[in-house]
Simulated assay, not measured.
Amino acid sequence: MSGSGQFDFDKEVDRTTSCSDKWDKYKGTDILPMWVADSDFQSPPAVIDALQERVAHGVFGYTHASNTLTDIFVKRMAERYNWHIEPEWIVYLSGLVCGLNIAARALSEEGQTIISPSPIYPPFISSAKFAERPLVKAPVVLRKGRWLPDLDEAEKQLKAKGGLLQMCNPLNPGGTVYRKEELEETLAFAEKHDLLVCSDEIHCDLILDGDLKHIPFASVNERAAQRSVTLMAPSKTFNIAGLGASIAIIPNPNIRARFNKVKRGIVPGVNVLAFTAAEAAYQHGEAWLQEQLCYLAGHRDLLMREINALPYLKLEHIEATYLAWIDCSELPVDNPHRFFEEAGVGLSPGLDFGNRKFVRLNFGCTRKTLEEALRRMKAAVARLD
């Protein structure tokens, strides 16, 4: 909980007048918006200060990343993950979703398969559709209380070698943090089937268990690096998603050239305020991040206790992210999303991810909001008895 720290995560910020996608969805209703993955926390003060200073400059022409931002990011990868990257590996993007779509087109050829976990964050599935590539789903299953894609099941569906394997680490939804041996198994699968790998690691900074560490897929060994595109961003970490600054790390020069060729002339450059926010966040946001992680871990623990104390619902341990993947398969209703929405809690429907018997709850909110959402959910479930 906040209160003892430097930053106030309990602060209620009115987002109803800010053209917020999250809050405007239920505008004029008594439904708490707990769906799309942005948080309700004000960004770190250093980010706000840097933006105000840059706005005061008053000129907002075409721009590029500063050497300082690149140096900070290279240093961050080395210090946090023992991953030593080169500046020329970095491709800046105006969003992570466009990175997924570029990778789908650039890292697979016409007729080649894209393999994706399922259930998964919807842009994984749509990227294959937009690229007009056949999609093979690797069903995400429980293994000792952790959600992981079953690559053996995916293998049964493959008809030829080549194509793209999509990863999400930490997993969204599910919150699983991949262990090194799991990454090595993924690499072995990719090598066996001659697959390139796009790893979405946008939630890598939001590890809630202190004994776990994020391991980038490309850092496992040189073989992994040379067949991979890694996507990262400060957006979820520091709640600056609306500014649009993401990073692709591509060690292999041929893959990087293919990626840039597809990107050229279609994906706009990153804007000056996004670069400003990213640099300030990475350079000065660590204390804020650590307090946020403690606050979110408290939310996670509350959710685990409250949801698993209810009949019909089940929530597995969330290792990372502020997104709870709640199993409603025993709930005696046809549409769990609509059921909770009618109770005043606006969650993400599991169908969007690939399983209609689940809902995803965004707990990147104040404790007051979370407690009210849980109160409404408990009351709704109690009315079923």
Score class of each variant (00 low, 15 high):
E372I: 08
G163T: 04
G3Y: 05
A188W: 07
N82W: 09
G265Y: 14
E342G: 01
D211Y: 15
F238W: 15
S118M: 11
Q157C: 11
G3S: 10
H203G: 03
R300S: 03
A382E: 12
L323A: 08
G99R: 01
L370E: 00
Y178L: 13
F9S: 02
A56H: 11
R375F: 12
E185N: 14
R105D: 02
A309K: 10
Q6M: 15
V345T: 05
V359E: 00
T70L: 13
S20K: 05
A241F: 01
L96H: 13
Y282I: 01
H299C: 08
M377F: 04
E86M: 12
E109T: 14
F124Y: 15
A297Y: 08
V381Q: 05
A56Y: 06
T63F: 00
A56S: 14
S43E: 08
L361R: 02
A257F: 13
I247C: 09
T186E: 06
E86K: 15
K180C: 06
N67A: 14
D8S: 13
G61Y: 09
G61M: 07
S118C: 15
L135M: 12
E155V: 03
G350P: 04
E316N: 10
L51K: 01
V359W: 00
A382V: 12
Y121P: 00
G265M: 11
Y121H: 13
D209I: 06
T366Q: 03
P45I: 05
G174L: 05
Q283K: 15
E79C: 07
Q292F: 04
V270C: 05
A160E: 13
K27R: 12
I120C: 11
G244N: 08
N221I: 11
Y92E: 01
C328W: 00
S4N: 10
E316I: 01
L187S: 07
S39I: 02
P122D: 11
A278T: 07
I120A: 07
G162Y: 02
K236C: 05
D200R: 08
L212S: 06
V267S: 08
L231C: 09
I48W: 10
P139D: 04
T16H: 14
N101P: 00
L96Y: 08
D301T: 13
L142T: 11
F339N: 00
P336R: 06
L187D: 01
E86D: 13
P251W: 13
E342T: 10
E330N: 14
T230K: 02
A320V: 10
P117G: 07
A277Q: 04
Y62L: 12
F353C: 02
V333N: 05
L69S: 03
F130T: 14
L142W: 08
L100G: 05
M232S: 09
N172C: 14
L69A: 03
I240C: 03
A379I: 09
R376S: 06
G175E: 04
K11A: 13
F259N: 03
V140C: 09
Q292N: 10
S235P: 00
D211C: 13
F353R: 01
R143P: 01
V55E: 09
K11F: 07
K261I: 07
D38Q: 13
E53N: 12
L351F: 14
V270P: 00
I202G: 04
P332N: 09
